[in-house]
């Protein structure tokens, strides 16, 4: 008996490749996990000079070199000022928020908040914020988030946020041209910043409306949503009825396919058509065609 035919050895090689790839993949994933955990430990030292450069590259063409905004070249409309003396909304948390969510610099139209691309990494964000804060006199700090309770967070969320962002923070529509982004996949810091800042069409929530503890609770609830989403096979925690209807459509298609297959006779019922039974409907005179009078009787 020949132990290793060409086919067997090919198969063995194939399995060896699969095995090596799997081990490499696991090792890579483990390394990536380790790297992810290590990253925040490095302290960030902001470099305002780099910030100045970044501002000139990324922001000046719309918000102006002096940060006072004005008409844009590529888009219709006026870019707002980024100086607190004529735009009181501007604070450090706002800057960090728009960078970390990829809202600014915009990936497409600055008025379309759906397309996001985060172009600045953590170091660049710190540089840019440091330079702008100094140059434009921007105050404020990036909020810290404590531990919270998801149960209370759900109540805060349903009372304040779900009518714009949806019950599970999946996003939706909050008015004409104001699409709400998904929140459940955002970091604690981002959520806290958004609540306090109220970016763009979103209202701002003061400490009197939502306390720091409640912010922590909302963050905990959003984490819970994310955990639930990761546990689902499709990665969707709860379906809204519109997405559910898409799945109903798929289910109906599958059922149609099923009856199509089962209903195409030769494959499942190999009896030839001659074997089909005939049954006389009724004693109608031969030759009587479609318009025959009543023939409701039994045969």
């Amino acid at each position: 008996m020949q132990v290793s035919s060409p086919a067997t050895s090919r198969a063995l090689t194939g399995w060896a490749i699969v095995l090596v790839a799997a081990v490499a993949g696991l090792a890579g994933a483990a390394a990536a996990g380790a790297a992810e955990q290590e990253a925040p430990l490095e302290p960030l030292v902001a470099n305002p000079d780099n910030g100045q450069l970044l501002y000139a590259q990324q922001c000046a063409r719309c918000h102006g070199a002096d940060g006072r905004g004005g008409p844009m070249q590529e888009y219709e409309g006026i870019a707002p000022s980024l100086r607190p003396d004529d735009n009181p909304n501007i604070e450090v948390a706002y800057l960090d928020l728009v960078f970390s969510t990829g809202r600014m610099p915009p990936a497409g139209s600055p008025y379309d908040n759906r397309t996001r691309e985060v172009v600045l990494d953590e170091q660049e964000r710190a540089d840019l914020v440091a330079w702008m804060a100094d140059e434009f006199d921007i105050d404020g700090e990036i909020p810290e988030v404590a531990e919270g309770s998801a149960a209370r967070g759900q109540q805060v969320w349903n009372a304040n946020c779900s009518h714009c962002h949806g019950a599970t923070g999946a996003g939706g529509v909050a008015g004409a041209g104001a699409w709400t982004p998904s929140v459940s996949d955002k970091s604690a810091q981002t959520i806290a910043e958004a609540i306090r800042v109220g970016p763009f069409q979103m209202p701002q929530f003061e400490a009197g409306q939502i306390s720091d503890q409640e912010i922590a609770d909302v963050v905990a609830f959003m984490d819970e949503v994310q955990v639930e989403a990761d546990e689902q096979i499709l990665g969707i925690p709860e379906l809204n009825p519109v997405f559910a209807s898409a799945f109903v459509f798929l289910l109906a298609l599958a059922a149609l396919f099923l009856i199509g297959v089962i209903g195409s006779r030769p494959r499942w019922f190999p009896t030839p058509p001659e074997d089909l039974r005939r049954e006389r409907r009724a004693d109608v005179p031969a030759g009587a065609q479609r318009r025959a009078p009543a023939d409701r009787g039994e045969s």
Partner: peptide, 14 residues
Amino acid sequence: ALSGPYVPGEVGNN
């Protein structure tokens, strides 16, 4: 579970 029990006046936009 995540959408929560019905509370009068609280409606998600979904």
